[in-house]
Amino acid sequence: MLPQAQLQTHVDQHPYPLLFATISGAHLYGFPSPDSDFDLRGIHLLPVREVVGLVTGPETVEKSGFYDGLEIDLVTHDVKKFFGLLLKKNGYVLEQVLSPLIVQTSPVHQRLRELAGQCITRHHAHHYLGFAANQWKLFAKEDPPRVKPLLYVYRVLLTGIHLMRSGEVEANLVRLNETFRLPQLPELIERKLAGPEKGTLDEADLALHRREVERLTTQLEVAYAESKLPEVATAAAALNELLIEVRCGG
């Protein structure tokens, strides 16, 4: 059960109007620990005077800390910056727009959810391949290795493969594994759900996970090569019109 009221109170304190705020991170991915923080992501709207003048407002607002007993990490981008990210091979922003864990929404957010499919390209595979490789490097350096970064590796690889094959963004590892049926994942997820954020792994399991990550990386590369998704996003014109409408107060 999400602490909706407490999260909404934090969102209400944002210095700019928010077009949406959703939950990302471990809660979205389906494996929050008892001590996981809440990762809030969204779009803020800078007023016209902070866009057209010599002194402009912040494109990104970040605020982290403990609020009413909750650890919250809030990151929002101005609408123009966020729309630009949507038109690039950025899986993060797609997942944020489409997150089912919604703290605050608006008609603009609903429109973005409708346009999200037109922002997906086959080259989003590079985002997931790169993130998985970086997470594996971090995981491999740890002593002892932790469950959390390993689950992040599995999550991004399965999300990427699923996206290339279906054109659908699915960030929840539990739901993804209903399709992939990797036998090692339920136990890892259970350990993450039940244990502290710094839960660790046994050395004996590392060889198995290394082979699996290599296999899934190859699967994502093949899925990218065979994907029928567009080469480029097709939502640029619609996003441009929506940006003008939002900025001008339409």
Rank of each mutant, 00 (worst) to 15 (best):
A26S: 15
H14D: 02
E50C: 03
F20Y: 15
A21R: 09
D35S: 13
F31Y: 15
S24V: 02
D39T: 04
P15C: 12
H14W: 10
R41P: 02
R41I: 08
G30F: 03
L46A: 07
D35L: 13
L19Y: 13
I43L: 14
F31K: 05
L45R: 14
L45A: 11
L40Q: 04
L19N: 10
D35Q: 12
F38T: 00
F38Y: 15
Q13P: 00
R41E: 05
G30E: 04
Y16V: 00
A21H: 08
I23G: 07
I23C: 12
Y16N: 00
L46C: 08
I23S: 08
Y29G: 00
I43W: 04
F38N: 02
H27C: 03
Y29Q: 06
L46D: 03
L46F: 11
P34H: 11
T22I: 12
F20K: 05
D37F: 09
S36C: 07
L45Q: 14
H44Y: 06
F20I: 04
P47A: 10
I23N: 07
D35W: 13
L45I: 05
R41A: 06
P32T: 00
L19I: 12
G42V: 06
S24E: 08
S36Q: 07
S33C: 08
L18Y: 03
F38V: 01
S33A: 15
D35H: 13
P17D: 07
S36L: 10
F31R: 05
A26G: 04
G25D: 00
E50A: 10
P32Q: 02
S24L: 06
S36H: 08
G25I: 00
A21N: 06
G42T: 05
L18P: 01
A21L: 14
L19V: 12
S24F: 15
H44F: 06
Y16Q: 01
F31L: 02
G42Q: 07
H44L: 06
H14L: 13
G42D: 03
V48N: 08
A21M: 14
R49W: 14
G42W: 04
G25C: 01
L40V: 13
P15N: 11
D35A: 13
L28Y: 03
L45S: 05
Q13V: 01
S36K: 10
Y29W: 15
H27K: 14
V48D: 08
P34N: 10
V48E: 13
L45Y: 05
D37H: 08
I23M: 14
L40D: 01
P34Q: 11
I23P: 04
D37K: 09
R49A: 13
Q13Y: 04
P34D: 05
P17L: 13
L19P: 02
Q13R: 15
D35G: 10
G42R: 06
F38S: 01
F38D: 00
Q13A: 15
P34Y: 10
Y16E: 00
D39C: 06
H14E: 02
Y16L: 01
L40H: 04
F38Q: 03
Y29I: 00
H27L: 11
F20A: 04
Q13D: 12
L46R: 11
I23W: 12
A26L: 07
Q13L: 15
S33W: 08
F38A: 03
P15S: 12
